[in-house]
Design a protein around this nucleic acid. Structure first.
Lengths: 205, 205, 205, 205
DNA sequence: TATGAATGAGTGTTCATTCAT
DNA sequence: AATGAATGAACACTCATTCAT
């Protein structure tokens, strides 16, 4: 009954499943994500999915690898386009913001994965996350070498300060209903810019 | 069959329900919070709860009022214990951290409440949130008046920069499983301190 | 706390309750009718209602007395406006139709009351129903006396044939979704007219 | 734990579910019909039912297809047993009555389905209903062709007059508790017969 | 290896009725 | 007599996971 796609290689199968899961995630978000929806988008049975991934959370962890890789791309582009180290740092923060605007469901996914009852040990996820950290760490070291950034900043910590707080502020600021009154008056891009400038000013040598 | 507590005053009953909901929230988190669990903790029937709160989300909104009020308390204490304005600002950030460590589920709750499909119009929630903002805004204005903080910082934005990014960074950094390797090596308190110092340095006049 | 209306006479209280129930019925229909809604409309507590009516169904039975009385009014007006006996009979059928259009919720109520699990022994309801029957029976006898209607028709049966089938046809015809295709093409008033003419033609002496 | 009947064909499973639903319907009526009751009667889990039918109303719509098909059978048998067209028409009305007596819950079901808040788009239901109409329409046309029925009767309207009013009168007359006094004295079969004769007399050419 | 039908404990929510005050 | 808070069994519907084929 199934089309041509029987007996694919293990790798192709996995790709296929994650591709479908990615589409579902982008459509409904992590909180409404169901395995059934993935199956609908896929020429593969539910049981088969569980042969490749032992739980729904495993699938989501795999999807989040895409999310992290994409964020790394945003970071790279931001840095490439800037000569000055501190400007590049600001650009990284703004890239975070752009990413958040363009891929809010990836955000939701990352938040979802941090729930204490989330269970998964996907190695590639850890790897993607390390790649991201390393990129920022190298950038920080580079700035310090050039003398534009305080030498006493711990690069690892600075890494987290940069993109952790950056993603955090966005998530928090988006809190729509909480601040309804002021919300209208706020230009979110300006806010992020103000944040970037303040933070980077604090890092400057 | 029920215990002694029949026919409490409306206020007492509400307190009772929210107290039980608060306990459940702290135990299982907002995402696993169920009305049934509240009932179990409470010598009250399910129907009774729905007489006082028209939905699960209403209950959670009410619980979050507690959460926000508590955070405000943390802020107040932090500021009171510091003479210097910038030190007080750092203290606010560290208070955020302490709060987050002590009440991680309140964090999850706030995130949960911002989901687009969350439904509730609890006025006291909006009020509590405004109180929090206003406190920080006043603090910023005060620092600016004293000349310790850059005069060109928009107090409203600075408010969000301070506690929004602050809560955000914690939420993000706590991402336990993501960074397993480095996680061991990280002293989270030091990290937040580094963050606070960098940010406040950027705000200094 | 309550306004002036404490300690009304039993009769006034009943009137008050039924009036509120009538409003609720017209607003939401018999199937969505709840005692709570009646209480909302009333300066009387729920417990009090149960002092006067032993069940929700009792209340509805009492409301339906209004419904039947109103239908009788429609019948009377129809007959009064016609000289000719058979024309008057047709007019009764058309009055049924008008009544149905103007008071669909009363219809729903009557249908609701016929469910086998409906429980109530409201005497006034039986009385109102008897009044309705008697009116039609007298009309039939009158027509027979004048020689316009077949003398061998049993007046009691003819009574039921007239208004029972009449209400039935309307209820059935309204079946909206069932006949979607043809429904557009049907002029319901014409249909009822055709029905009335056929039936009355069959009654003519 | 479950019995032998695992992994039936899709069709068999549907049959099984509808059969159980049909039994429940006949036992408790459409208004008290619950999915849980169907589950109890069935060696199948609740979730399984929802794999085959997406809502309770869908199940009921499917059951009502049976109900309508059965009524059509009653109609066919009635007509087949009569030579004379008008006698056959009377027979259709009496068949309605027999059907109603034998399957009162099917009646309740049809009424239930016409409630404005009923939701379902079961095509086979519409089809079954159209079959029923078409059968009567053809019968009317046939009578008109033979000259036994007034040529100016609109067959579509006459269709509704016949079985719509017919079902209606029964539903209404059966109103047991309403007319308690007279109810004893009434021979319902005679009443329907009187109705049939009157109506058919009105249709005769 | 792939399947996909089956599972069943849970979800939030409703409402007629009771009964202590 | 009047109250209205409390009850709790029902209800429709969901979905991650399993397992016989």
């Amino acid at each position: 009954m199934r089309a041509s796609s029987k007996h694919l290689s293990k790798h192709r199968r996995e790709q296929q499943i994650i591709a479908a899961a990615d589409i579902v995630l982008r459509e409904v978000g992590a909180n409404n994500f169901t395995v059934d929806q993935v199956v609908e988008r896929l020429e593969v049975a539910k049981g088969t999915i569980y042969k490749y991934y032992k739980s729904k959370d495993d699938i989501l962890a795999e999807v989040s690898v895409n999310a992290l890789k994409l964020l790394l791309d945003y970071f790279k582009i931001a840095v490439e386009n800037q000569k000055d180290g501190l400007e590049a740092t600001k650009a990284v923060i703004m890239a975070c913001y752009q990413y958040y605007l363009s891929h809010p469901q990836y955000f939701e996914l990352i938040v979802y994965m941090e729930r204490p009852d989330f269970r998964s040990d996907v190695k590639s996820y850890t790897q993607a996350s390390a790649d991201l950290s390393n990129f920022v760490i190298e950038h920080v070291k580079c700035c310090q070498a050039k003398g534009t950034m305080k030498a006493d900043l711990n690069p690892l910590y600075t890494n987290y300060v940069i993109w952790g707080s950056c993603m955090g502020i966005m998530n928090f600021i988006e809190s729509k209903r909480v601040f309804i009154e002021q919300f209208e008056k706020i230009d979110r891009k300006e806010l992020v810019k103000a944040y970037a400038e303040t933070l980077v000013a604090g890092m400057a040598a």
